[in-house]
């Protein structure tokens, strides 16, 4: 149930962020449901395949989408996730790494120098973000003594906040920074930029078109949903007793996170590429700090 919700609502999240940014820029903005229409149109189109490419070019987006779907089965929302077992956190992170591997190879497959550049930046940022994600989740593991995402969800909440509020604040900030970095949002990357040389994620998918582009767009919407869901379910979970209320609250927090992303994007300038490592490193430092607070 909660998984279906994610599948349907994910593109809405991107629309919401767009509207927030438009609001701050004094524009009307595109319709909230624009991405749905875009996807529907892209799926019906023909593709242009570069003569350079190999099956890897199409396999990349396909594998990323499927891995993200698998991730979605592991994250709890308003109730334990579909699949849960000790150590599912590691599988979750492994699948995210697989997404990066597949996307980057698909980009390299075109032989375009722009896409090579984007790929190079993506792996650099990804490699630095990796310790941050592991450590911030490790903090939650130690705090809740649970080795699965659903277990963390079950034992996190207001009680944990009152016991270790400072730790939760640090982890929350770290995870939010990682969410921005991993989903190529503004201080790290600008999803709306139009100059190839300045992009990271968008430049990697320059050559994909038609259904392949639809798969990519949908996958990145899902990734944003998953990132926000992680914050919503692990750091700010609700346990009201009623499953429906929990679900509603969880989705609400997801949209609040998207709202915060929109706010950050509207009020901050993009960092220079040389400062990005520091930005990503900051999240590792924060989660490490939280870890020291927990274990000392």
């Amino acid at each position: 149930m909660s998984m279906l919700l994610g599948l349907f609502l994910a593109p809405l999240l991107a629309g919401l962020i767009h509207r927030v940014k438009a609001f701050f820029a004094g524009r009307q903005g595109r319709p909230l449901l624009q991405l749905y229409w875009d996807l529907a149109r892209l799926v019906r189109k023909h593709m242009v395949l570069s003569r350079t490419t190999t099956p890897v070019f199409l396999l990349g987006p396909a594998l990323s989408l499927v891995s993200l779907l698998a991730c979605l089965t592991l994250i709890p929302l308003g109730g334990p996730a579909l699949l849960r077992f000790p150590g599912d956190i590691l599988l979750f992170l492994g699948l995210l790494a697989l997404v990066r591997f597949a996307t980057v190879l698909a980009a390299m497959d075109t032989g375009s120098s722009f896409e090579g550049m984007g790929a190079s930046r993506e792996v650099a940022i990804g490699a630095l973000a990796e310790p941050g994600i592991f450590l911030s989740l490790a903090v939650l593991v130690v705090q809740t003594r649970a080795l699965s995402l659903s277990g963390i969800w079950a034992r996190s909440g207001p009680e944990l906040w009152s016991r270790a509020g400072l730790v939760m604040v640090l982890v929350g900030i770290a995870m939010f920074l990682l969410l921005l970095a991993e989903n190529s949002r503004i201080p790290v990357d600008d999803p709306n930029t139009h100059l190839e040389l300045t992009m990271i994620h968008e430049v990697m998918v320059l050559d994909h078109s038609g259904p392949a582009l639809a798969v990519i767009e949908y996958a990145s919407a899902l990734k944003l949903w998953i990132g926000s869901l992680l914050l919503s379910s692990l750091v700010f979970p609700l346990h009201s007793g009623s499953a429906w209320l929990d679900l509603l609250g969880g989705v609400g927090v997801v949209f609040l996170v998207a709202l915060a992303v929109g706010l950050v994007e509207s009020t901050s300038a993009r960092l220079s590429m040389l400062r990005v490592p520091q930005f990503v490193g900051l999240s590792s430092a924060l989660s490490l700090l939280a870890l020291f607070l927990v274990i000392r």
Partner: peptide, 15 residues
């Protein structure tokens, strides 16, 4: 991936 490759497409050049 296979399903995608079955979709109609035309060869072109890398952008």
């Amino acid at each position: 991936g296979h399903a995608l490759s079955r979709r109609p497409s035309q060869p072109g050049m890398t952008w």
